[in-house]
Amino acid sequence: MKILVCISKSPDTTSKIAFTDGDTKFDENGVQYIVNPYDEWYALVRALELKEAGGGTVSIITVGTAADDAIIRKALAIGADEAVRIDAEPTDAYFTAMQIAEYAKSNGFDLVLTGKETINYNGSQVGGMIAEGMEVPFISLASKLEVNGSSATADVEIVGGVQTVEFGLPAVISAAKGMAEQRIPNMRGIMAARTKPLNVVAPADVSALTSFTSYAMPPAKSECKMIDPENMDELVELLHNEAKVI
C-alpha cells in the first residue's frame, strides 16, 4: 500500500502572536515552527503503523519553500520513507490542495492522510479539497482507521458521538485526536532523516481563490472580577444579571 501524508508547519503553540507591515503579515520574529500536531501525532504515526502491520511505503508531502525543509526533516525523523516538497508558497487551501491532488493522482497513492486542521488558520479545508480534486471519498475527522485490502473503516466525529463508516480506496482521510499515539523521534530516526530523499517538485499552474489581507488582535479582556469564595450567591447573581448567561 502506498500512503501519502500531508505535512504542514505551525508556530510552536506557545508562540507570541503578533503582526507586522501594518498588520498584513504574521510576525515570524522569534517564532519556532513545529510540524502541525495533527499531521505529526495522528496522521503520520497512523500511516507508519499501517505500514508496519501490512507493508508498503509512507511518503510525506509539503507545499512550501526551502525554508520548510527543516520541518520536513523533523517529520522524516519520526519515520517516513521519503519526502516531497512542492516548491511554492502555499497561498491558500485551494492552491495547496490542487498541488497535492495532482501529485497524488499521478503517483497512484491508495491513502492520503491530512491533519484535522492547521493550528494557525484552523481552516479544515485542504483534505476535502484534495479528495474533490482526486474524485475520491473524503473521511473527515477520523479518530480511528483500519485498512482491509481495498476498503477501509474509520470512526468519525458526529454531533455528540461517533460513527463507524466503511469506504473504498483510494480515499483521503483527515486525522483527529485518537487515531494514534504521539511518537518521540529517537537518535537513529534523526540521523536517518538526514539522508532520506527529499524530492523538490515544480508546482502545477493553479490560482488561489482567497487571500488573507490583514489581521487584528482581539480587544484586551477587561479586568477579571474577583469574587469571595464564601459568596457563591453573588457569582450566580452576576452570571444572571450582569453577564446574562444563566
Binding site: Y94, G128, F138, L209
Partner: peptide, 18 residues
Amino acid sequence: KAAAPRVSVKLKAGLVSG
C-alpha cells in the same frame, strides 16, 4: 468541514471557514 471544501472545488468558488 467535510462538504464545503468539495463544493469550493466543484464551483471553483473561494471558501472562507470560521
